[in-house]
C-alpha cells in the first residue's frame, strides 16, 4: 500500500478557489439572475412595493424592442459611436504600428511617443468628458476661442447642440482615448511574429508596403480579432463619456444616448422603471454573450487543444501505471 504516505493535495485546489466562487455567486451570478427576473416583473418606483411577474412575462422586452423609440435609438447610437471610433482607431493604430516596427525607418523616441499617445487612456473618463464639454463650451470655450483666433468661424458655434457634431465629438473622445492602447497591443503583436518571416521577406526583396500587407497583417489576425471583440464589448458598455459630456445625458435629441445611459436613465431617473432597465440590461447581456461566444469560437487556439490532449494522455498513462501496480 503506497497510499499511506502520500497526502491528497487535490482538495487544496477546491479550497483555494472557494473565495472566488463564493464572491462570484453572491456578487455576480445572483445579481445577474435577479436582473433577469426583474425584467419579467412590474418593479418600479422608489418605494418598494410587492412585485408581480407580468401576465405576459415578455412584455417589457416586447415594449422595449417594438414600442420604445429611444431604446432602439440607443442601440443604433451605441453602434454608430462604436464603429465611427473603431475604424479610425484601428487604422491609425495600424499605421503607427507599421512605422514604429519598421527597422529601416528606425523611428527615434518611440518610448516617449508610446507614453504620450497612451496617456488619455489612463485618465478618468468622467474627467475627460467634463473637460471636453468645457473645452467646447458656448459661447467662449477654448475651442470657440481658437476657431475665432484662426478665423475659422464668424460667430461662436454651439457644438453641443448639433446632433452630428455632438456625436462626432463623443466618438472622437473614444477614439482619442483608445488608439494608443490598440497601438501598443498591435506593436506587441508584431514583436511576437517570428523574425525569420521578415528576414525571408527582406531577402525576397519585398518592399515595406508588401512586407506589411503580406507578412505583418496576416500574422496579426488573432490579435486584431481580440482587439475587435474586446472593443465591441467595451463599446457596448459606453457610459462615462456620453453620460457626462452633455447635459441632459444623451442629448441633443437623444443623439448620444447609448444603451448604458438609457439603462441608467430608466432605472435611476424619472419613474424609476427598474423592470424596463433590467430587460434592457438582459438584451445587452445577450448581445455581449453572443460576441464573446463568437470570439471564443474564432480564437479557440491550438495550444488549448494540445494541452487537453496532453492531459488526456497523462491520465491514460497514470491509469495504465495504476493497473500495472
Amino acid at each position: 500500500m503506497r497510499r499511506k504516505g502520500t497526502i491528497n493535495y487535490a482538495k487544496y485546489g477546491y479550497i483555494f478557489s472557494i473565495p472566488f466562487v463564493l464572491v462570484f455567486l453572491v456578487f455576480a451570478l445572483y445579481p445577474t439572475l435577479y436582473t433577469a427576473f426583474i425584467g419579467f416583473t412590474d418593479m418600479k418606483g422608489v418605494i418598494p412595493k410587492p412585485v408581480h411577474i407580468l401576465d405576459n412575462p415578455f412584455q417589457n422586452f416586447k415594449e422595449l424592442i417594438f414600442d420604445n423609440a429611444s431604446f432602439r435609438q440607443s442601440l443604433s447610437n451605441t453602434f454608430i459611436l462604436w464603429i465611427t471610433n473603431f475604424i479610425p482607431q484601428i487604422a491609425l493604430a495600424l499605421l503607427l504600428t507599421a512605422w514604429f516596427t519598421n527597422q529601416r525607418l528606425n523611428i527615434k523616441g518611440q518610448g516617449m511617443f508610446k507614453v504620450l499617445l497612451y496617456m488619455p487612456n489612463i485618465i478618468t473618463a468622467s474627467t475627460i468628458a467634463v473637460l471636453f464639454s468645457t473645452l467646447f463650451a458656448f459661447p467662449m470655450g477654448p475651442v470657440n476661442s481658437l476657431f475665432d483666433a484662426l478665423g475659422w468661424s464668424d460667430a461662436p458655434i454651439q457644438f453641443l447642440q448639433q446632433k452630428n457634431t455632438a456625436r462626432g465629438i463623443v466618438s472622437f473622445i473614444q477614439f482619442w482615448m483608445w488608439y494608443g492602447n490598440t497601438m501598443i497591443i498591435l506593436i506587441a503583436g508584431v514583436m511576437g511574429i517570428n523574425p525569420a518571416l521578415f528576414e525571408a521577406a527582406a531577402i525576397d526583396g519585398a518592399s515595406g508596403f508588401q512586407t506589411f500587407f503580406r507578412v505583418t497583417l496576416p500574422s496579426l489576425r488573432t490579435i486584431m480579432l481580440f482587439t475587435l471583440i474586446t472593443s465591441m464589448v467595451g463599446g457596448l458598455q459606453m457610459f462615462d463619456i456620453p453620460q457626462l459630456f452633455i447635459t441632459p445625458a444623451g442629448g441633443p435629441d437623444n443623439a448620444t444616448l447609448t444603451t448604458s445611459v438609457f439603462i441608467y436613465g430608466q432605472a435611476f431617473k424619472g419613474a424609476y422603471m427598474y423592470n424596463k432597465a433590467a430587460a434592457a440590461s438582459m438584451i445587452m447581456f445577450v448581445i455581449a454573450a453572443a460576441l464573446a461566444a463568437l470570439m471564443f469560437y474564432l480564437m479557440r487556439d491550438r495550444s488549448e487543444g494540445q494541452l487537453r490532449k496532453k492531459l488526456r494522455a497523462q491520465k491514460k498513462a497514470a491509469k495504465a501505471a495504476a493497473r500495472g501496480m
Binding site: A28, M43, I263, A278, A288
Partner: peptide
C-alpha cells in the same frame, strides 16, 4: 472563468443595486 470574463457589469447592475 474564460466564459465570465467578458460579461459587462451593466448587465447585472439593476439586480446588484436592488440586492
Amino acid at each position: 472563468i474564460l466564459c465570465v470574463m467578458l460579461i459587462p457589469t451593466q448587465a447585472s447592475a439593476i439586480g446588484f443595486y436592488k440586492f
